[in-house]
Amino acid sequence: MIARALPVATVIAAILVLWYLGAVILNAPWERDQAQRAGAEISTAQLIANTMAQTRPVLPAPHQVAVEIWNTTVLKKITSKRSLVFHGWITLSSTLLGFAIGTVMGILLAVGIVHDRAMEMSVMPWVVASQTIPILAIAPMIIVVLNAVGLSGLLPKALISAYLSFFPVVVGMVKGLTSPDALQLDLMRTYGASRRQALWKLRWPSSVPYLFTSMKVAVAASLVGAIVGELPTGAVAGLGARLLAGSYYGQTIQIWSALFAAAALAASLVALVGLANRIVLRRMGMAR
């Protein structure tokens, strides 16, 4: 355990040190400029202290971001428009809705592809090709168009998330559903099992590890979709809106705290899927 934790801790410490250095170097010109305008000499110690306490720094120091996150999560009421929990929840809800839609649709399409050869031959190449297309570029259009039809709020963002999480699931599940080898499929046939029974008793259980692997990718993609989906609505609510508002008003600390909130959200979502993976596999007796 220590053998694994020590290198990671070292790397994280190195990143923090570099970050502080970067904050001092990047923020120093502004401080020097201020001092010169005031006609005052500024000592190096004072300069370094000042660079870490600006209100609109070029690069905020880590502790400034930490304080901002603490202020906007624990100290603010959850219903407040300035609470990160409030914005995080909005992003999280569309992420989860989109992830659920995308996963279910992906599984259904994969089942169709595995059972119908015509479908496999015609749809599968397009599914693979669509991975190379920058799908996120369509996000603002989907939002605006759906707004024009009268759909607004959660669903349009969730649709983008669903679209992004859909493809990894299809590709992973097609692989998973075809993973039982010919011997096992033959055994099902000698039992006189119908295709439905073969699907439920053999293909579905053996595809579960593949499902979880692609769900890990899908949930991360889904969060990105939700964040980007929040950009074109004009910075109303959500982590993406916090990013955009921060960049309009030059509030760098706000941008960084929204960024860290998004990162924490992504990491915990992936970790949750991983945890579910371990529990399910253990209950199925497939844990290694």
Binding site: A220, L243, L259, A262, A266, A267
Partner: peptide
């Protein structure tokens, strides 16, 4: 796995 796009 993080939404790096946010650094834009």
């Amino acid at each position: 796995a993080l939404p790096i796009i946010g650094i834009a």
